[in-house]
């Protein structure tokens, strides 16, 4: 029963898409869903999209892992060394302020080509995870803090036994929010520096006026984001059941 609204929403979306395509509401560059599905039905096209999506997905995951690890280390440093917190926050804001496109350009000039999509994805997610993790690390109640103080806990013990377990669910929430951003970062990075993946496929589709392929690639990218988001949602549910 819980799946009903989701299914109903998807059906409505498909119908609207098909109608817009058939009636040419937005011109001929908006294909019908049927045309896109027909493109996808061709085995060679499936293999092309699947391999591109896997590559982009791998880069997005690597970027998410790298950016999140850096963000969590910084957020932890901010908790363990409170004097450093404002500086770390400013650094994170600054990194967040650099446009993703500009980061990609700089990466192409300074990094191996293959590393660019991963690094762009990492920089794109770092701020989101930093903010989520910083907030999650300070959610323990004042009574819990008083308890640890009276028990004679060191700052490190309080961090390991109180702050970290209390921060896991909130940090996974941040990872989940960041997952689609990692996909965008990987695709932007690929535009500049890669020959394979969804990014180059999008560029090639646009340049060759391959409308169905462009839309099918977009669909694949969307699906990739949804899958990553859902997987992290599952992880959050497991963590929530164990920790909260």
């Amino acid at each position: 029963m819980r799946a009903f609204p989701v299914v109903a929403g998807l059906v409505a979306l498909a119908v609207v898409w098909e109608v817009i395509g058939r009636l040419h509401v937005f011109g001929t560059t908006w294909p019908t869903l049927g045309a896109v599905l027909a493109y996808l039905a061709v085995p060679g096209n499936q293999a092309l999209l699947a391999s591109a999506a896997l590559r982009t997905g791998g880069e997005a995951l690597a970027g998410l892992a790298l950016g999140s690890a850096a963000a969590i280390v910084l957020a932890s440093a901010g908790v363990l060394v409170p004097a450093a917190a404002p500086g770390l926050g400013a650094l994170a804001s600054l990194v967040n302020g650099i446009p993703v496109i500009a980061i990609a350009g700089v990466c192409v000039l300074t990094l191996p080509r293959d590393a660019t999509p991963v690094v762009v994805a990492a920089l794109a997610v770092a701020f989101i995870v930093f903010v989520a993790s910083s907030a999650a690390l300070t959610t323990s109640s004042s009574t819990n803090r008083d308890l640890f103080a009276v028990l004679g806990a060191s700052r490190m013990t309080t961090f390991v036994r109180l702050d970290v377990p209390g921060a896991i669910v909130g940090t996974i929430d941040g990872l989940r929010t960041a997952a689609p951003v990692a996909v965008v970062g990987a695709i932007v990075g690929e535009w500049f520096a890669a020959e394979h993946g969804l990014g180059p496929l999008l560029v090639a589709s646009m340049q060759n006026y391959a409308i169905e392929q462009l839309w099918a690639t977009t669909l694949a990218g969307t699906l990739l984001s949804v899958v990553l988001y859902s997987l992290l949602g599952g992880l959050r549910a497991v963590a929530g059941a164990r920790l909260a």
Binding site: S141, T143, L147, V150, G152, R161, P165, G166, R242
Partner: peptide, 19 residues
């Protein structure tokens, strides 16, 4: 006394760790 871990305390909020 706190440094010796010889102080016991209980609050109105039980302050048990849920995990």
């Amino acid at each position: 006394l706190v440094a010796e871990h010889r102080l016991g305390i209980a609050f109105q909020d039980h302050a048990l760790l849920p995990w």
